[in-house]
């Protein structure tokens, strides 16, 4: 109930000063119970909070699964909004995080002891938290510099590393942390959350549109909320949220075009292949997205034999790798379309 009140108060306040807010920020979970579909993580964290002894934490998982939200919510529950400012140091890739910063800023912060029970609140734990967001973009040197700092200052400071790829964190750091994997959000929990937001924002929606929204965003909550916000702006004009709107906004390539590409690839003549490649590039579709969607369509396809599909997937992989390394989109697409598929 408190929460509801809090939210309403906030939204009226927003209206008053005309402040523009991204929904992603507005609907960020305010406490740990609101973090949806990461039950295990939340359960373990709650247990550790009860014992008042938090290990160093390492959160990893795909984007938009609530890693940053969870740690912020945890910090808020531990310290309350007042103390949070002085007890939490949040550093992310937008701050400079070279080895110097680790040596100076983090070390100094972590060394300072905390005064206990400053406001008579006995539940306040005797340690501070350093949040290193997007830790996988930290240099190896900086990570190495953290190692001993983490141990020396463990009396008064807990570290929380957040990253997408745990493999980019050096081993000595991972072995010092309790690892938590955040999984992609399930469809149900995403849907319930989106429905909630729709109700709060008075957006007329259809079930279909929401389902498409969830499909398009692939388990990334942030993506779906961003799309929802953009779509809502359009839906206010056109009356209701429709699946087509979602497609357009998400930049998804229509299935008909993907099917055409597959057909031309397998059966097309040389000229058709050339025109197709030109069309795709000039329409501005992203080729890497096209590859992904071709792959998806292929899996569902029943027309081609498994052998052909295997060859096709092999070529897709090759092209995708080249694209990631910065190769030219048009050449890769041409090469893909002209690749020979032995049947």
């Amino acid at each position: 109930m408190d929460l509801m009140l809090g939210k309403n108060k906030k939204s009226t306040k927003d209206k008053d000063d005309g402040k523009i807010e991204l929904w992603v920020e507005k609907y960020r979970p305010k406490n740990m119970d609101e973090v949806s579909s990461q039950e295990e993580v939340v359960k373990v964290l709650r247990k550790t909070m009860e014992t008042k002894n938090l290990p160093h934490l390492l959160f990893y998982g795909p984007p938009g699964t609530g890693k940053t939200s969870t740690i912020l919510a945890l910090a808020r529950e531990l310290y309350g909004p007042e103390l949070m400012k002085s007890r939490v140091l949040e550093l992310n890739a937008s701050d400079d995080r070279g080895i110097d910063v680790i040596r100076e800023k983090v070390k100094n912060f972590s060394r300072l002891a905390v005064s206990q029970n400053t406001n008579g609140n006995s539940s306040c734990p005797p340690y501070k938290i350093v949040i290193l967001d997007e830790a996988d973009s930290m240099t190896n040197d900086a990570q190495t510099a953290l190692r001993r700092t983490m141990e020396i200052s463990s009396k008064v400071t807990r570290f929380c590393l957040i990253c997408n790829y745990v493999s980019r964190i050096i081993d000595p750091l991972t072995s010092r942390c309790a690892k938590f994997r955040f999984k992609s959000l399930g469809k149900e929990s995403m849907k319930s959350r989106l429905e909630e937001i729709c109700k709060c924002e008075n957006i007329p929606y259809t079930d279909e549109a929401l389902n498409e929204l969830i499909n398009v965003s692939e388990g990334d909550m942030r993506k779906s909320i961003t799309y929802l916000q953009s779509a809502s702006q359009l839906s206010k004009i056109e009356g209701s949220l429709t699946p087509n709107m979602v497609f357009e906004l998400a930049g998804v390539i229509p299935n008909e075009i993907v099917d055409q590409v597959i057909n031309v690839w397998v059966k097309g003549t040389s000229d058709e292949k050339m025109t197709m490649a030109n069309n795709i590039i000039l329409s501005g579709y992203s080729v890497s997205k096209l590859l992904l969607q071709i792959n998806k369509r292929l899996v569902e396809n029943v027309e081609f034999s498994s052998k052909i599909k295997c060859y096709m997937v092999k070529y897709l992989g090759k092209a995708e790798k080249a694209l990631v390394e910065g190769a030219d989109e048009k050449l890769q697409l041409l090469s893909l379309l002209y690749s020979e598929i032995h049947s």
């Binding site: 984007p63 965003s217 942030r222 993506k223 906004l249 998400a250 501005g284 890497s288």
Partner: peptide, 21 residues
């Protein structure tokens, strides 16, 4: 020119508008 070289965390924070030729 194309979104392939833009990392997905940024893409997920933006509205993508495709301007075709």
């Amino acid at each position: 020119d194309n979104t392939s070289k833009i990392i997905s965390p940024i893409q997920s924070r933006c509205l993508l508008l495709r301007i075709s030729a």
